[in-house]
Simulated assay, not measured.
Amino acid sequence: MELLTELMQYIMNNQSELLALTVEHILLVIYGVVLAFIVGVPLAIVAVKIPRLAPVILSVANILQNVPSLAMLAILMLYFGLGNTAVIIGLFFYSLLPIIRNTYVGLQEVSGSLLDAGKGVGMNSFQLLTKVQIPLSLPFIVAGLRVAAVIAVGVASIAPYIGGGGLGKEIVSGIAQRSDIKILAGAIPAALLAILADYLLGFVEKYTKKRTA
């Protein structure tokens, strides 16, 4: 109970700084995930259209996903220096696999009879993709974004180790000072952000499922 009281007092005394760190954390996640979406969806489309490239694309994304996060950020720091640029690129790499894999599966799940029907009414490949395959794949694509966002929120928490910002600053500072209060002041909002991202994108996913049912 005493710890909770101290934590609430600390948050009240440092609310403006914690809010700024939270906003910075959110922006890091958004930049990384949006960049992964912009690159990942086209890569998934290429994997579907050119099946021989699918194993290569998925394997590379899987390798990037399995590199330990601190090691990945340390490597990126060597090439992009300290700061948020290296963090965003790291979040981009970690967000690629769920987006590529889910989009790929979603496009593959579109019924062949629907594609044949589209061809029957004169649709070309681009029209089939944009008017049939992608709309029907939206629940899978949003599910990929959901997983990517939750992963990115967690990985962004170690950004300060390579000069990045976000709530990880409070966590790292707390570890250095052996302060439970500072660690919790950074860890709890980060956990809440992950829960919020999962909930909101889960709601969007359910909505898209209803629309495509």
Rank of each mutant, 00 (worst) to 15 (best):
L107A: 07
S113M: 14
E170V: 04
L107M: 15
A159Y: 06
V172R: 00
V132Y: 06
T103S: 14
R146W: 09
D116C: 06
G112P: 08
Y104T: 03
V155M: 06
E170K: 07
Y161W: 06
I151E: 00
I175F: 12
Q127L: 13
L97A: 06
G154A: 07
S179W: 04
S173H: 02
F93D: 02
G163E: 05
Y161Q: 13
G122I: 13
G112Y: 09
I183M: 11
I183A: 08
D116K: 14
K131T: 12
P139V: 05
L136Q: 14
T103E: 02
V121R: 10
I171G: 00
V150L: 12
A176M: 11
G106E: 06
A152W: 03
D116L: 11
P135E: 08
A159M: 00
G174W: 01
A143F: 09
I100N: 04
I158S: 10
K131L: 15
G163V: 02
R146H: 10
V105R: 00
L184S: 03
I158H: 05
S113W: 13
Q133N: 15
S95L: 04
V155E: 09
A149E: 03
D180G: 15
Y104H: 08
K169Y: 04
I175R: 05
E109Y: 09
G165H: 04
A176G: 09
K182V: 01
L97Q: 08
F126T: 13
S179N: 11
R178V: 12
V153P: 03
P160Q: 01
Q177F: 09
